[in-house]
Write a protein that binds this DNA or RNA. Structure first.
Lengths: 357, 357
DNA sequence: CTGAAAGCGCTTACAG
DNA sequence: CTGAAAGCGCTTACAG
């Protein structure tokens, strides 16, 4: 306000501390009120075409971008998108972050990361403080955070947008991205069945993860199509970790007769099975076929290369964030119309083959 | 302001839309001006003990936390900390994020992630827009972003705090965390020398990464201590990736005579060497010893387990963020005094042994 | 040690 | 289609 006098329009940033332009500068130069500039920024339809063009030109020229904090304060919400996750797989997390950032690029929104633990007593209060304090626009929820109904309730209460990513639909399409893990697991089952395996085992993830159930169910369905069953003793639950996979693998391989193929709920556990096989002098795939899930970078680095099911995680992050941004669009059904489905694909490599004679 | 009348103090949140308490509520209840509340929030020493205690009690009781956006607007900077990285290793990224978040917890700051590409033409303009628009408090810079002097200049210009994480000191202690990669690489050299190897090779990372040079130098120094040289033909440059490591490994193993040990600039490339060895029917460690760098999760999952050098990446993230927060402390030397050094440690596993007879 | 005024850069009602 | 006023929740000068 200090120098609202002398300086005529067109005269910008010549002083000592060339500060960033504000909405007031734009208004002055365009000879309109700041409210009209605000309308242009917020794409209000109630601006004369001529006025809009003029203002946009000046915005462009000065490289003006509205201050997200000031806008946020007035809007009573921020331009931050959170990613709340308890994903143990770092590649998953980083890939998804990248996808989310792709969608956010140029939108004026930024990504704030927030790992959590669903089993912590502060789980909900911590997230409440985070969302409330930062007045988050919305959050992207990969599994298994996406599967927590208490969390969803909380977000609803706080009026915070969200998109849930899960193996099956848990919500309406406008806030859901489904990865159809059952289909991916069924593909793995078909692959093993077609190779001729009949003694087929499965090591699932922890019960806390919905995906663990869905993948097992899909696998069972795939086997059924080929007239095969998943025998109860060949179906073990583990923790999505390398060690738990190795333990479960050891149990399976010590059975009589032992399975000739194992499908694990993720790649980490598949590598655990590799270890158990090696310790017993069993060759992969000659003596034992192994199929994982995720197609983590390790899958193509270990020997033999791991046959696995790939999820396009980066795309998923991008799609989820795109949907999230659409939730505030004028068109109330835009978010629901945006793509909600992702298809896993089997990647056949070296770790699966015909069963031993 | 609408209901600044009737309601007496002590009467809170009984209405329909129980909004969060503001500084005005606290001031009213404490019967002081909001400015005094502000002083308490900002730990000004110029508040009577009695007044402070009273205000703090009310803040505690209402669970009041100042709005970061409003504070940010008034302060002309935000309470966001950025992590700007071009790290190819996802585990590194996630671990460091976790460490940073540990340090930020309870501080009122949040972490905004921002991957970048130093070779992109928009590298600097993109970061300028990010830092300027969000008015970041500061950024944590892992390698190789930390090594980019253009970036540092830009951050200085924008008055954005930063802590650089690098293999050698590149800056003053207040904004530097040194990982001493040369010491880690020297340990690897000693280990191989002590096992009796004399034909020792090294595959370094890309020249763009300072760590690639530092690790090579440290390795050479370690060899020298044992009277050994790194022969020029046994010293190859690759790209820190699996494939480039496999290619370089293939070249080395096709030499006559071939090296009996290889130290790679990271674990990814070490696994590439595993592949090259397997393709040639060479056993590890009987025919070839391999030592990596990073101790990525893969190192303990592959077979044979990889001998490697471990960096406490999570601790590094925490330490860097702690230092960053101290940069705005009243004590101008607090940041410089905070720990600036991290020591890598050799983890001996199965991939290294005596050279073939 | 404490407070009244003005301002950070925007937007929401409310008028016209 | 456009604008003047008030406000979002804080802090910075400036007084006392």
């Amino acid at each position: 306000m200090a120098r609202d006098d002398g300086k005529a329009k067109g005269d910008v940033g010549e002083g000592a501390a060339k500060k960033r332009a504000t909405i007031n500068d734009i208004a002055r130069l365009a000879q309109v009120s700041k409210k009209t500039v605000s309308r242009v920024i917020n794409r209000s339809p109630f601006v004369k075409e001529e006025t809009r063009v003029k203002i946009e030109a000046i915005i462009e020229e000065l490289g003006f971008a509205p201050d997200p904090q000031a806008r946020g304060l007035a809007f009573r919400r921020s331009f931050l998108v959170g990613m709340i996750y308890d994903q143990p797989n770092p590649q998953y997390v980083v890939d998804m972050q990248q996808g989310v950032l792709e969608a956010l690029r140029g939108s004026g929104y930024e990504l704030v990361v927030h790992p959590c633990s669903r089993t912590s007593p502060q789980f909900l209060s911590d997230i409440r403080a985070f969302v409330e304090r930062q007045k988050l626009y919305g959050v992207v929820l990969p599994p298994s955070a996406s599967e927590d109904e208490r969390l969803i309730e909380l977000l609803d209460e706080l009026d915070c947008h969200y998109v849930r990513i899960a193996s099956v639909s848990l919500d309406e399409p406008a806030s859901m991205l489904v990865t159809h893990d059952d289909a991916g697991a069924a593909e793995a089952a078909r692959h093993l069945a077609e190779l001729g395996h009949t003694r087929i085992a499965h090591i699932s993830g922890p019960a806390l993860f919905r995906s663990a159930h869905i993948r097992r169910e899909g696998f069972v369905r795939g086997l059924k199509e080929h007239g095969l069953d998943l025998e109860a003793r060949y179906s073990l639950e583990a923790g999505y970790t390398f060690e738990s996979g190795a333990d479960a693998g050891a149990k399976l391989l010590d059975m009589q007769p032992r399975p000739t193929a194992v499908f694990t709920g993720n790649d980490e556990m598949a590598l655990g099975v590799f270890k158990a096989a090696r310790e017993r002098g069993l060759r992969i795939p000659e003596d034992l076929s192994v199929v994982g899930y995720d197609d983590s970078p390790m899958a193509s680095r270990v020997w033999p290369n791991l046959t696995t099911v790939r999820l396009p995680i980066r795309d998923m992050g991008r799609m989820a964030a795109e949907k999230l941004l659409l939730q505030s669009s004028e068109d109330s059904r835009a978010a629901a119309r945006a793509a909600s489905d992702v298809r896993p694909a089997l990647v056949v490599r070296e770790s699966s083959g015909r069963p031993p004679a």
